[in-house]
Design a protein around this nucleic acid. Sequence first.
DNA 1: TATTGTTATACTCTATAACTATA
DNA 2: TATAGTTATAGAGTATAACAATA
Lengths: 172, 172
Amino acid sequence: MARPPAPSTAKPSAALLPAARPPARRIDRGMLPTLLGYAMRRAQSAVFADFAATFTQAGEALTPGEFGLLVLVERNTGLSQMALARALGIDRSTLVPILDRLQARGLLVRHRSPTDARTHALGLTADGEAALARFTRLVKAHEKHIASGLSASETRTLIELLEKVHAAARSL
Amino acid sequence: MARPPAPSTAKPSAALLPAARPPARRIDRGMLPTLLGYAMRRAQSAVFADFAATFTQAGEALTPGEFGLLVLVERNTGLSQMALARALGIDRSTLVPILDRLQARGLLVRHRSPTDARTHALGLTADGEAALARFTRLVKAHEKHIASGLSASETRTLIELLEKVHAAARSL
DNA sequence: TATTGTTATACTCTATAACTATA
DNA sequence: TATAGTTATAGAGTATAACAATA
C-alpha cells in the first residue's frame, strides 16, 4: 500500500529510515543475566570473536586453542601426543587432525622418540618459533583490548575468580 | 619380564602400583596462566562439563545453549526465528537444525504468523513449559555448584567483571 | 527489491571404537 | 596385555551461498 507523503507533523528522521521495520521488539532475557554460566558464555564468545579479529586484521590465522597448543609444545619440547592431549583436556584422537594442520603449515614436527618408538616427540620448527613470537605479540594486544574496561587489579581478581570456578566445577 | 619380589628397601606403595609409568612430566604452561582468555576458556570448559553432568545425572539432556534458547522463547512468545537468532548471536541458518531438534522433542512449536506469513511465531508447548521448569531447577543446582568456591559477593563481582569484558571485547 | 526461513555444503571440535605398531 | 598414534565414523556448532515464499 502506498504511503501518503508524510505530513509535516511526522517525525522527519523516522520518515527517512530505509525500511522502517517492526520496532525490533526488546528481548526479555528473564533469569539469564543472573547466571554465572550465561555471563561466562557471553563474555567468552565476544573474547573469541576479538581474538579472531585481531589475528585476521594482522593477516594471520590462529585459534585460541592452537595458540595454547603451540605454547605448550614450545615450553615442553619432546612432549608426546598423549601428554599434550591430557594437558589440553582433549582426547588423543581429537588432537591428530589439529597437529596435522599445524604440521602442514610448517609450524610443528613429530619426531620419532628414540626411547619409546610408540610415541612422537613434538617440537616447533624454526618457522614455528618465529610464528609463535608474532602470535604472542598479537595475543598480548588482544588481551589488552579485552581487559581495557578493567583495572590491573580487577583483571587479577577476575583471573582468580575464574580459577576458583574452574576448581569448583571440576570437584566431584 | 618377571619383576623380582620387591626387596624390603623398595618403597612399598610404589612397588604395588599397576603400571609404574614414566614419571608423567610436569607441564610448563608458560605465560598461559597470566592470560584472561586462557582462564576464561578453562573455566568455561569445566563449567560446560558440569552442566552436562548435572543434566545427565538427572536423566535429562540439554546444552547451555538450548537452555538459553528455551528461556528466550518462553519469555518472548511469538518471537520470530530471525529475532531469536539475533538475540542468540548466531546465523539464522544455524538456528534451523537446533529448532528442528527441540521441536522433534515436542518442547517447542513453529506457528505461522498471521501478520507476516514469512515469519514463524515460536512458542513452547505445554511439555516444553514443564520441561523448562525442571531444567531451571537443574540449572540452579549447577550454578550453586560452580559458584561453591565463591562468596555471594564474589559471584556478583565475577558476573560484573565478565560483563565488562564482554563490553570491551565487542567495542570497535 | 528486501526479508524470512530453508537447504546444500563445508569446516571445526568433539568423542567412541577399532586398527597398527610397539612395549 | 597395555599403550601410542591413527583411522573411520558420527554428532553438534558454526558459517556462506542460493532458493522459494512473501512483503
